[in-house]
Simulated assay, not measured.
Amino acid sequence: MRFGLSFLPDCTPETKSPQTYFSDALELSVQAEMGGLDSVKMTEHYLHHYGGYCPSPLGFLSAVAARTKSVRLMTGCVLPVFHHPVQLAAEAAQVDAISGGRLDVGFARAYLPDEFDALGLEMDESTDRFRETIRAVLRIWTEEKVSEQTPFFSYREVTGLPRPTQRPHPPVWGAAVRTPESFTWLGTEGLGLLITPLISPHEFRDHLTLYRDAFRTAHGGSALRPRVAASLPLVVADTDERAEELAETYLRRYLDVWAEAVSPWDRRESSAYRGYSGFGWMLRGLRPTTLYTEGGAIVGSPATVIERIRAFNDHIGGVDQILWQIDFGAMPLPEARRTLELFCDKVLPEVKSL
């Protein structure tokens, strides 16, 4: 199993300024590479304190590339529904070149109503727009004189520049959250799968089976293999008691900021987002202890964290990579650094063989 860092800024101006947030995230990225982690991931969002500091994961990853030598750089995710494929393909290929071929591109459909409203896009069209844009980006990376005619964009005889450094293109992932069809589609398309198991890994086990079955049906006998990466909050401290104290404070902040961003779902429905209505109510009622007792976060001393990682991997049916959120809730840099230090020194040697 491989491990990395997952960043999603959830700061308010009172808890961390944008300058401080990115300074901390870059320092943690360098520390992660030195500690033996494999990847750094950043997420795109707008407008809300949940993710809104980072409208450009590729911009952040370019800065990480300049400070590191080997760590993989992952968008987790860019939101293709908000971008033209010519632009997205070119900007991603640029970061692939800057980093010497270290980019992984993760795509997500986007799900925050305020983002769609502000950008003047229909949520009910998001699935088709998401899939058409990914398909178009892959063509621009691998073909010349590409023409497209879709309800969302059109162009004739486009040859994208720069060409990807990795051939035929950077590894591609897609995020899935609740909709079974999303897991099946990603498997059929041969993409890697990104998940965030919010409450319990048990609820994702059947979805991972859908993904893997669809992948093997479509790509059995080829060199392609299904890949699953999970993002989880992590706190490691010298004792379970100290780790739980930190988790209670900063997971509560994380959940509160997230709940505010999804609160429009309390009064919104969309045929493209079955099961999302009331999402804010669910988050507001979720206790931090529920996350780390049921596996949606990993919290404890090094020995406890080793045990909980093994349990998580067993309950969910096995993942290839875990990407740790270690600075959630605008956690101060010293506390996040301590989690990363303890994980790399005392936990990683015991779990990387999973």
Rank of each mutant, 00 (worst) to 15 (best):
112 L>R: 02
80 P>Q: 02
110 A>S: 14
62 S>P: 01
46 Y>T: 04
112 L>I: 14
63 A>K: 06
60 F>T: 01
27 E>L: 01
37 L>I: 08
50 Y>I: 12
86 V>Q: 13
80 P>M: 02
34 M>C: 04
38 D>P: 05
12 T>P: 03
78 V>Y: 10
91 E>S: 14
44 E>Q: 15
75 T>H: 07
37 L>A: 07
54 C>G: 04
101 G>W: 13
106 G>N: 08
103 L>R: 05
98 I>N: 05
92 A>D: 05
87 Q>A: 09
101 G>P: 08
88 L>C: 12
95 V>E: 08
69 K>F: 01
41 K>R: 14
25 A>V: 06
105 V>L: 12
18 P>S: 10
53 Y>N: 06
7 F>M: 03
112 L>K: 01
54 C>E: 06
54 C>S: 14
12 T>K: 05
96 D>A: 07
51 G>W: 01
28 L>I: 10
34 M>R: 14
103 L>I: 13
92 A>W: 07
102 R>I: 04
109 R>T: 07
22 F>G: 07
114 D>K: 13
92 A>R: 00
108 A>R: 03
91 E>G: 01
78 V>N: 07
71 V>Q: 05
76 G>M: 06
35 G>C: 06
88 L>N: 08
52 G>C: 10
55 P>S: 09
38 D>Q: 12
52 G>R: 05
111 Y>A: 11
34 M>E: 15
102 R>C: 09
12 T>R: 11
97 A>D: 04
47 L>H: 11
11 C>W: 00
33 E>H: 09
32 A>S: 10
94 Q>L: 15
43 T>A: 12
74 M>S: 11
61 L>F: 12
67 R>Q: 15
13 P>F: 10
89 A>M: 08
30 V>H: 05
113 P>Y: 02
19 Q>R: 13
51 G>R: 03
30 V>N: 04
16 K>M: 15
